[in-house]
Simulated scan of single mutants.
Amino acid sequence: MQKKQKLILGQLLRVNKNNVNKKIHSELSPLGWHLLHCIFIEAIWVRSYFFSDETIVNKFKSLADATKINVNKRHLNLPNIQELQNFAETYFQENIILIKELLSKNIKKKYSIKYIINFLNQHHSQHIEIMKIIINLHNLKFNKNFNEYTQEIVPQKYKFSGIEIPNGIYKVGAKKVGFTYDNENPRHEIFLKNYIISKKLVTISEWFAFVKENGYKRKEFWSAKGWNWCIKNNVNYPLNWVFKNKNSFSLSTPNGYIKPISNMPVSNISKYELEAFAAWNKMRLPHEFEWEVSSKKLKETFKVWEWSANQFFGYKNFKPYPYKEYSYPWFNKKYFTLRGSSTFTLNDIKRVSFRNFYQPNTRYIFSGGRLCF
Rank of each mutant, 00 (worst) to 15 (best):
G178I: 07
R218E: 11
N263F: 13
W229V: 11
N245E: 07
T253N: 10
G226K: 02
K212G: 11
N245F: 03
W241Y: 02
Y195W: 02
F249Y: 04
P186N: 10
G173F: 03
Y195S: 05
F208C: 10
N247V: 09
Y237G: 09
V242K: 03
N228R: 09
V211A: 12
R218Y: 02
K246M: 08
D182L: 02
M264C: 12
N183D: 14
R187A: 15
S223V: 00
I261L: 15
T203S: 15
S248H: 05
E184Y: 03
N185M: 13
S205V: 02
S252M: 01
S262K: 10
P186R: 02
W229E: 11
K171C: 05
S198T: 06
K200H: 14
N234C: 01
Y237C: 12
N233L: 02
Y257N: 05
G256K: 12
W241I: 03
W229N: 13
P186M: 10
K244A: 08
L192S: 03
G178V: 09
N228S: 11
K193C: 14
E206W: 08
W241L: 02
V235A: 06
I197P: 06
T203M: 05
W227Y: 04
F221K: 07
K219T: 04
S198F: 01
K259D: 03
N236D: 10
S198Y: 00
F249C: 06
P265I: 04
